[in-house]
Computed example of a mutant assay.
Amino acid sequence: MSKSFRVTATGERRWHRLRSLIAPSYEWREAVKDVSLTIDYGEFVALLGPNGAGKSTTIKLLTGILTPTSGELLVGGRRPTEDRRRNAELIGVVFGQRTQLWWDLPALDSLTLLRDVFGVPAPDFRKRLAEFDRVLELSSFWRTPVRHLSLGQRVRCDLAAAIIHDPRVVFLDEPTIGMDVVVKEQVREFLRHQVEKRGRTVVLTTHDMVEVEKLTRRVVLVNRGTVVFDDTIDELKSRHAPPQRISVSFDGATSRPEIRGVSVTEWDGHRATFQLAPGSTPQGVVRELTERYEITDISIREGDLEELMRSAYRGQSQTAGTTVVQ
């Protein structure tokens, strides 16, 4: 699928900007370009990319807020924009900086209203509330008006609101932004439970790489509206892992070390950082270092997920097709 937006072309010169106020000209910009993606029922997928990469636009297309300019989009076998009522029953959505709760009502009243909107039977409603409360600890603040809740409290209530009608698919756009580490772990536990025990499909966008590694196996990287990687985190590491680095502190000043299979990237007379060459192993380098030098500290650094993502952005592209969420 693809999505383009018509924007005003202002130009760089001042008179171009002035003319655009009187007789504007327009141009088309592609926010999503030929994205091809299939997500199975019960799968947890992280949709990642830098700001402006097309993540939020993709989520809005999947939820039916936006209509694709071209291509085919199916969620649960239905086109979101053609069957909006059924699509609303099928999905749950949390946008981290927006809320679906009523601002001046207690959070519990908002959940009760959503129960009536979706026609959730009272016994099911009570059972789900109890389940949510066990993990998210909602009852300590759900009688407080939403406008008085902290960000972490509000988003936990938003998660409950998104799932109160038992949707098959849940879209989360930066759900833990601004949360402290304790609340983040509560939310992660809740999401794990929804996927592993309830079999929901979850599509997550986030800039928190720790969250990605703790929650998902599959990552989809988008850049400039195009999918550049779609596979497991392990496969991402296998294809795009940067060279390993070894940091060493020497006991006293020494001459610049020369070790086979590595290059020295940093050196100050007491401490060195080595970058491994292809085919070299950390074990062999560490063994040679300890045999030849007096070492006080040594550490091996793997490339983190952000480095892997940057490498993938530079190296891959993907062709167009049909986007399907089971």
Rank of each mutant, 00 (worst) to 15 (best):
S4Y: 00
S4D: 07
H16N: 10
H16F: 00
L18T: 01
R19P: 02
I22E: 07
D34I: 04
L37G: 10
E43S: 06
F44V: 05
T67F: 06
T67M: 10
S70D: 14
G77Q: 03
E89P: 02
I91L: 04
T99N: 09
W102G: 07
L108F: 03
L108M: 09
L114N: 10
G119A: 07
P123F: 01
I163N: 00
H165W: 05
F171M: 05
I177V: 14
G178R: 09
V183T: 11
E185Y: 08
E185P: 04
H193C: 09
H193F: 11
V202H: 02
M209C: 03
V210G: 13
E211G: 04
T226H: 15
V228Y: 03
F229P: 12
A241I: 10
P242D: 12
I246Y: 01
S247F: 11
V248D: 09
S255C: 13
S255E: 14
P257M: 09
E258Y: 05
I259M: 07
I259Q: 06
A277D: 12
P278W: 00
P278F: 02
S280M: 12
T281S: 14
P282E: 00
V285C: 03
R287S: 15
R292N: 11
Y293E: 08
E294I: 00
T296I: 06
G303S: 14
S311N: 15
G315A: 14
Q316P: 02
Q318T: 15
V325Y: 00
